[in-house]
């Protein structure tokens, strides 16, 4: 009898050791690294060529010789993954990885990435836009930057009539625009369709920090600036004419052209270490 009791006690202790809960959520998110306490600041600086973007009050020229002013330039950055020099990577937990960069809102241009594992980071990978899964998920998954309540004719980035997000929004005016109001509107979205295949304009970007290393360790907080060159949107491999196409939205050919233009609009700017250290 006593033997049986001891046997059970032993079994209980062993089971406690064996079955002890392990948190496998991070393993699912990323096979490489798990969350830590590090911090990383990511700044998006919107430029036109080499100059800082000025809304409304500055006239630019496209490669077709048409002049333009820009009134709105917004885009989504999501699903951020930090790449470490040793080849490992850390994917920011998805729920904290959607950002709407709005040119008229400077606060939206600085992203604070928290709870990172320590390491020397050499690059970054992210999506311009919103991944297809999140584009179809329930409304409880659409808070923060994804809140669909924004004004469509304003800085809102949600399409109500064709449910999904606008990945990039560029608006402005051009004397060459053939629109009756002289403006142009480029709203590029489309995630591939819910139950029927449509155009997929989701683009993944990979930026190398130009050989430098962003060191995340304790109080050491790196700050990386990336440039987003608006010129690339209209002067890319598929130049946009404000005369010919003052509005590009859901068009299956033209929207792809613009997305292929802007997928290379990002470049590495500069890296500062400890810029926000306490």
């Amino acid at each position: 009898m006593k033997k049986l009791v001891y046997f059970y006690l032993l079994l209980m202790v062993v089971s406690l050791l064996v079955v002890a809960c392990k948190d496998d959520s991070d393993e699912i998110k990323d096979p490489g690294l798990v969350a830590g306490k590090g911090k990383f600041l990511l700044q998006f600086d919107n430029v036109v060529g080499k100059q800082d973007l000025v809304l409304d009050n500055k006239t630019y020229t496209n490669s077709l010789g048409e002049s333009l002013t820009i009134s709105r330039f917004n885009y989504f950055v999501s699903n951020i993954k930090l790449l470490r020099e040793d080849g490992q990577s850390y994917t920011i937990p998805q729920d904290s990885s959607y950002f709407r960069i709005v040119e008229s809102d400077p606060k939206s241009q600085i992203l604070s990435l928290n709870n990172l594992p320590d390491g020397n980071y050499s690059g970054i990978e992210y999506i311009i836009g919103v991944d297809s899964l999140r584009s179809v998920s329930g409304i409880e998954k659409r808070g923060g930057a994804l809140d669909p309540s924004g004004e469509m004719s304003g800085d809102g980035m949600y399409w109500a009539w064709n449910s999904g997000y606008i990945f990039l929004k560029l608006e402005g005016a051009s004397p060459q625009s053939s629109a009756s109001n002289g403006k142009f509107y480029y709203h590029i979205g489309l995630f591939g369709g819910f139950n029927q295949k449509t155009v997929n304009n989701i683009k993944t970007v990979k930026i190398d920090f130009g050989g430098s290393r962003a060191i995340v360790k304790g109080d050491s907080i790196p700050s990386v600036k990336l440039y987003a060159d608006v010129e690339k949107v209209y002067n890319g491999p598929n130049p946009i004419s404000f005369d010919k196409n003052p509005s590009i939205m859901a068009d299956p050919v033209l929207s792809v052209g613009v997305a292929n233009n802007y997928k290379s609009m990002f470049s590495f700017g500069e890296l500062k270490q400890n810029s926000q250290a306490k």
Binding site: V136, G138, A160, N162
Partner: peptide, 19 residues
């Protein structure tokens, strides 16, 4: 909607409100 542009009831009201 007639064109099936929305596929989740929770996202239906955005359409008439913002049209």
């Amino acid at each position: 909607f007639w064109d099936g542009g929305v596929f989740d009831m929770d996202f239906v009201p955005f359409n008439p409100i913002e049209n």
